[in-house]
Design a protein around this nucleic acid. Structure first.
Lengths: 244, 244
DNA sequence: GATTATGATTTGTGATCACACTTGCTTTGA
DNA sequence: TCAAAGCAAGTGTGATCACAAATCATAATC
């Protein structure tokens, strides 16, 4: 399978060596910005500058501007007519729009995954649930970052089983777009002594374990919808208050 | 609404003048490459070089490399481990994957559009149908380019009515990904004295005119599926021939 | 004669510079 | 006192250069 150029009897050596992997600076910048966006480290409507990010990431402007361009095409960022870029602001319409798309596409992905996940994969996501419980057990410090990360791992572990190289990047794009909004909701959840997210996740796992695609889709929709409807109400009441 | 900086009594002049619009070179390169991709001007598996494209488009490498980066994140192009980029090759799995995603997402878009399209919009897409008929009437020259363009206009005119700023970019990405494949199919159609695409389109228009979302979705699925299943059979028979 | 080594050419990546546009502040003039 | 002009700092865009890695053709070696 490997290139023949490694020589005749170098397979033995090659088996011992891990591929070194040449990640470009641009890739690192891109990943870092993605992480920040999904994690909600940037606020909606916040303006980003190339030189500012380059300084923060300790590189030159070149990798940053290319990474920004990529994020703009994914709609994770927005190019203003002034040619400055910002993270898209939250509006009611956009919230509903994102929710609908996520339920549609992630629902399809989990329905596909339900038919394809074996005990091996189920065990994998149960591990993540266990980690979640562990984290909640010692809840002195509300580690929102960790919550976000675990939630992400849980969902994408499932989506990866759907076997679609087309759907997964779309889902990533949707997470990128809803990341900055969701963070706001999760914060508010944490403060409001929320209903535990784990319940929703457990329901998803049950459906997957019994290969029930329909139930999985429903449970997932419920899980996704929660922060969205929460945020929706918050926005609406804020708008009502502005009116008065 | 306009900037106050235009002065006091310059509104009269401003009304006469069209905004000049400052498109960047990168934007033009990007659009041009998109057009080429959707139109199927590049073959699957074809390798593209930055300097080569820059020469062809008569610019420097800078706008090209950024445009390529954007297309790669949309999965319209593929970055090889060698760091060269190519248009993704066709495989059976990828074909099925793309078809499923397109039926899912474009189906949702047309279902939404069905409830929102008024007589005004219906008339718009009927105009496109008329252009199509006109083109077919004088069919001395099989103008595949024009077929592709009209087909695209027809579909996106509908999708634009769905009112979702999230779904439309995803659909564009899907067209970008399936463009190089579809072109192959359309060529083959033209040669094979095809069943007229217009029939399928007319069925879609009928469903939309009666606001029948379900029928519209079905008709659209049939329209989209045609070139895919055609290509699928072609690929399979080719694979079978290779076996022998 | 097949495989490996060597060198030239090509290609992507990142840094830097020049230029144009934007923005915010100061100054000017009525 | 206030709006318009002018100025300065900041910012995105595109061109160019330096460098490293890849590719390909040729030569050397077993």
């Amino acid at each position: 399978m490997q290139k023949a150029a490694v020589g005749k009897n170098n397979e033995a050596i090659a088996a011992q060596l891990a591929p070194v992997g040449r990640e470009t600076v641009q890739d690192r910048v891109y990943s870092e910005l993605r992480r920040a966006l999904i994690g909600g480290l940037f606020e909606p409507s916040q303006v980003l500058t190339i030189r500012g990010l380059a300084d923060a990431l300790v590189t030159s402007t070149m990798p940053v501007r290319e990474a920004l361009g990529r994020l703009i095409t994914e709609k994770a960022l927005e190019a203003l007519p002034n040619r400055s870029v910002r993270v898209p602001p939250i509006t009611l319409e956009r919230l509903d729009d994102l929710l609908r798309a996520r339920v549609l596409i992630e629902g399809e992905a989990i329905a596909l995954a339900a038919a394809r996940m074996g005990p091996r994969q189920i065990a994998g996501i149960e591990t993540i649930l266990a980690e979640w419980d562990e984290m909640r057990a010692l809840k002195h410090k509300k580690d929102v970052d960790r919550e976000v990360t675990l939630n992400q791992s849980f969902h994408f572990e499932i989506y990866r089983s759907c076997g679609s190289a087309v759907l997964i990047p779309m889902i990533e794009s949707l997470w990128l777009q809803s990341g900055p909004c969701i963070r706001v909701a999760i914060y508010a959840f944490s403060e409001a002594g929320e209903v535990d997210t784990a319940q929703y996740h457990r329901r998803i796992v049950e459906a997957l374990a019994t290969q029930d695609a329909h139930a999985a889709r429903e449970a997932l929709a419920a899980d996704i919808s929660r922060p969205f409807t929460f945020l929706r109400n918050k926005l609406q009441s804020a708008a009502a208050k502005d009116q008065t």
